[in-house]
Structure formats: structure tokens, C-alpha cells
Write a protein that binds this DNA or RNA. Structure first.
Lengths: 118, 118
DNA sequence: TCGGGACCTCACACCAATGTCAGCTTTTAG
DNA sequence: CTAAAAGCTGACATTGGTGTGAGGTCCCGA
């Protein structure tokens, strides 16, 4: 199929599909006019790629992961994914801490002698 | 005081102090040679600015907030901060959902017939 | 008078996926 | 035949606090 159809069937924009290719996540053949041609399996591949993005994985990590998944190499895939999970946890922790800081500021603003001109 | 001393006393880099000024968070006088001069109160102001950043506020929001704090306008400050808190909560929720997605991928990889070549 | 340190402005780099525009070719419908 | 639709490449914008470097001014001590 061509890129427009893949876009419609996968939900990814045409721009995104070209980007995935640029990042080495998706390969495409070319027809005589230079247009990308995709096999049926590309739909599933894009779905997997998008799952990765939805899981906050970067294109780089997805590029590393896809070959491992194809090779069905569980331990290595796990190692990669666990590291990403840890990164994500750290980010969540950072934002949670920021929320605590924000609550402190809110308390600071709210508690003292309150006066307002508007 | 000059920018180097303010940097040392506040913990913010010289670069950051200039950036704060550019964003309208911090004002500075100039001496005859064009160098920035800060009053003692600048130390406290930078501390407050940095608290804002630590609470994940953007320079834009801090710029809006500082005048309200100076006017001791609690309700408006609260409105602003509450809105930011909500934004932060939404981000935390998004990342938490991403973690769930990641866990799904991990389950997907881990569960099936496991085999590995490395 | 010379060296160096502190300061100045301007500006690019970073991270990263996507939107969008420009300018072009090819295919296809009418 | 022609116009529209679909595709192509290439490139810039977005977001934002900070690092870093170039190139210049100024001031102080030796």
C-alpha cells in the first residue's frame, strides 16, 4: 500500500510515517515513481511503534527495541524496557516533587496576613 | 552588588540571572560602565524565582505571579497557582498513564513463549 | 603599561516529534 | 488534455532554561 493508505489505517500522519522511516523504525520500498510502498505488515509495525511512543519511549529507544522484539529476545528487551521504566519513574518522581514545591509556595502565599487589592 | 556576587549568593548562574532579566523577572540598574547593579533585595527575589522554577513554573507564569505577590494579592495568586497545580497534575497523570502503557508493553514482551539468541 | 578578571551583547546548541509550507513530479479522473 | 489529488524532498517552527563561545569593554593591581 502507499503512504496515504497506511496513514489512514494506522492513525499516524503521513508526516509521522516519513519521520519513522527517517529514524529507522519503518522501512519502505519504492515504486517506479519513487513513491513509498508498504507491505500489509507495516500496519502492525506502525501500531507497535505508536505503542512505544504512547509509552514515552523515544524513537531512538524504539529503534533499539524493535530488532530485539523481532528476534524475540526477551531478556534484552526486558533490560531495555526496565531501564526506560526507571527513567519514567524518575521523571514522575521529579514532577511529584515539583508538586510538593508548588504546594509549599501555595501555602506560603495563602497562610500569612491576607490582603488584596483586586 | 554586581552580577557575579549575586550569582554566588543566590546559586543561580550568571547566565541564568541575565535570562531572568530578559524574561522580566528581575530588574537591574546599570553603573557607568554598563554593568548590572543589584540591591540587597535581589538575593531574596532570585530565591523566590528559583522556588518558582523548582515548582515547575515557567518564566512566563513567574512573571505574572511576582507582581501579585508583591501586591500581596492572595486570591489572584491562588488562582494562578491553582491553575498551575492542575497543569502539573495533568502532566503527572499523563506520565503515569505512559507508565501503564509501558507496563503493558513489558507484559507483552515477557509473557509469551520466551526464547532468546543472546 | 600590561595582564587578567569581570562584565557586556549576540547567538547557536540542546531535546524531539510533529505541523506546515514551498516547490516539484506523477498519476488519475473527467 | 487538464486539473486535482497524492506523493516527493527539504527545511523551518515549536518549547524553554541553560551552557557555551566569540569578540569587545572596562577596571584594577603589579
Amino acid at each position: 500500500m502507499r503512504i496515504g493508505e497506511l496513514s489512514a489505517r494506522s492513525g499516524a500522519s503521513v508526516r509521522s510515517l516519513r519521520y519513522y522511516e527517517e529514524q529507522g523504525l519503518l522501512t519502505a520500498g519504492r515504486d517506479s515513481a519513487g513513491r513509498r510502498r508498504y507491505p500489509e505488515s507495516a500496519v502492525a509495525r506502525v501500531a507497535l511503534i505508536r505503542r512505544g511512543f504512547a509509552a514515552s519511549l523515544s524513537s531512538r529507544v524504539i529503534a533499539d527495541l524493535l530488532p530485539l522484539l523481532e528476534a524475540a529476545c526477551v531478556p534484552r528487551s526486558r533490560a531495555l524496557l526496565d531501564a526506560e521504566r526507571q527513567r519514567l519513574e524518575a521523571q514522575i518522581a521529579a514532577m511529584t516533587q515539583a508538586r510538593t514545591r508548588l504546594d509549599e509556595v501555595i501555602a506560603l502565599v495563602t497562610d500569612p496576613t491576607r490582603k488584596c487589592d483586586a
